[in-house]
Design a binder for these strands. Structure first.
Lengths: 336, 336
DNA sequence: GTGGCGGATTGAATCGTTTCACCACTGTAC
DNA sequence: GTACAGTGGTGAAACGATTCAATCCGCCAC
């Protein structure tokens, strides 16, 4: 109803509009009692700054767009939290878009963000967006890839080293004395899945007498993990691995269910188990799951940092920051 | 770099800015070949409409804000999807804020949305926001509560009937011949928890010879469910319930783990089990879980509908839409 | 008394779009 | 030949903030 503008505030406070604007943006250039008077007028009228007008004048907004593959995924939820906190600390806000692994939705969000003249875009891409991002940049909007390496595309990125994660997991198993390691994976066309395997290979290669077997599941979910587990159980005990590294926690949880159900195989005594992602359910599993955790929050914070740096100085060269994941040890590998 | 404006497009296409604007917004009022010429100019220059300027002129944006308690929660993720799809269908977009059950974050998002002059706000509130929403309305921004009844606050709402959900769950158990029902809950200060219990009570009251026992856990997570399950198992078989209705799926999954682990109690033969929320893990549990599903997506769609109706006609009276949840039957209650 | 200095304040120009009253042109009816 | 309706197009005003050159004012130094 009201439609209170800066003009109304100025009139009530008995100052000019320029002064009100100064109170809002650079209070230090205004005398103390004028500030007080203007603030009082703002409160009385319930004035709220019209961000569109501000943005029109200054040329860009103070929001950054974030497009993730799946908000429901705790990894991205945590990443978003990190981004929000970092943005908040410097007076920016984050608007979140969920592409849901759908190229059209992803494109729609990029269009929206461009119309909104966001300060920049953080994106975990599904399609091949590099040309789109390049175009964005020509129009003055910077972008940072998250959870995906930029690999010389000229776009900055923050990602996690999956090879290191796989290495970490298997090295842990080897350090416990296990030697017959199995890698349980699926959908090997996904980079993450093969990178983790590569890390596992490297760890095994360092220890004489250690062997790595690759077990392929039908998919990356609990059900598929359970199916794989049932197969393992059917083998004669001597042919079973003494440790399994699963490509993600869902597979690991399914596998665990199968092992525990039969009662024949003890975890970790007979088979030690490591998952990946450290989802909530990892710690809540029947046997709490050792898992590799990605520094999701840090990823988000760092991405915002890079983005705002680049927005401030467009000449800055692209950076690629790679984080190392962390092993969270629980009962599925170490009795406790 | 370019900073292409509608003016540049107009110049290149050899028309006036007004015409370009018409091409953008009401192409039917412009002759076909002019449209084509303008479109070509737009493509050539890579023109993208500046939403801030548009918004400044028309007085409001075409985005709506959505504040949820926890984006990580699949219920809210699904609700957001519904809202986005519905908004998209009428040319609006949704920007998502995650309050994370934090009053300060919630307030910050409301401030942000107000500055942005969003078309309206959808909110699943944590604090007592009615006075804040009232103020928003005075400034011309409508709000709709989601997953929370408006109860005569003058604010519209869409919610799910938890009493009906509880009734549904227990009626199902009773129809299977179970008579010694237990309700496993925690944190009874949460309305949802007590409403579901109330529904359970009503169902039990309708069947002579049926009894309802309330079991209190320490919290609403898997770990707490498992603890409660261990207690149940310790009872003599004759004193155990023959069915359990858990206040949510996490509790149910924990309970299930405890029952299955001991091997002493068969599910559903000895104890049938119903959860609530139908989270992904419900169907992936060792014994797939019967659960009560909330129409999250529909909630989001409906909320957007109400919001945009009200935005179009501010005189509209507040509406309170209550949905009925749905029972998803799986192996934890019915063998097969 | 004058000049100069510096901090506080002013007010008009500006951002890029939409909107709307108005104009030009074409064809048609009389 | 004139009037009229209908189409397609024009261009300037308006939206509400920010910015910056200009002004004002008080005070001090000489």
């Amino acid at each position: 109803m009201a439609a209170v503008g800066i003009k109304d505030v100025a009139r009530l406070a008995g100052v000019s509009v320029g002064t009100v604007s100064n109170v809002l943006n650079r209070p230090d250039r205004v005398s103390a009692d004028t500030v007080a008077r203007v603030r009082a007028a703002i409160d009385e009228l319930g004035f709220v700054r019209n961000d569109a007008a501000r943005q029109l004048r200054v040329g860009h907004s103070s929001t950054v767009g974030l497009v993730v593959l799946d908000v429901g995924n705790p990894f991205f939820a945590e990443l978003a939290r990190g981004a929000e906190d970092a943005a908040d600390a410097v007076g920016h806000s984050v608007i979140l878009g969920n592409s849901d692994e759908n190229v059209a939705r992803e494109a729609a969000y990029l269009d929206l963000f461009e119309e909104q003249r966001v300060r920049g875009v953080l994106i975990s891409p599904i399609g091949d967006v590099t040309s789109r991002l390049q175009k964005l940049r020509e129009h003055g909007t910077r972008a940072v890839l998250v959870d995906r390496s930029g690999e010389g595309t000229g776009v900055s990125s923050v990602s996690v080293d999956d090879v290191a994660g796989g290495y970490l997991a298997v090295q842990h198993l080897l350090s416990l004395g296990r030697r017959r390691i199995a890698y349980l994976g699926a959908q090997f066309e996904i980079r993450q899945v093969t990178d983790r395997l590569e890390g596992a290979r490297r760890a095994v290669a360092e220890v004489p007498g250690a062997a790595l077997e690759v077990v392929t599941a039908e998919g990356l979910t609990v059900v598929h993990g359970r199916a794989a587990g049932q197969q393992l159980v059917r083998r004669p005990a001597s042919e079973r691995p003494d440790a399994v590294f699963a490509a993600n926690d869902l597979l690991a949880v399914g596998l665990l269910q199968a092992l525990v159900m039969t009662g024949d195989v003890r975890v970790p005594a007979d088979i030690a188990l490591v998952g990946y992602d450290d989802i909530d359910f990892a710690s809540a599993a029947v046997v709490p799951l050792t898992s590799v955790r990605q520094p999701a929050r840090l990823l988000g914070e760092t991405a915002i940092g890079i983005l705002l740096d680049e927005a401030a100085d467009p000449e800055l060269a692209a950076r690629d920051v790679v984080f190392t994941p962390e092993l969270v040890v629980r009962a599925s590998t170490v009795d406790g």
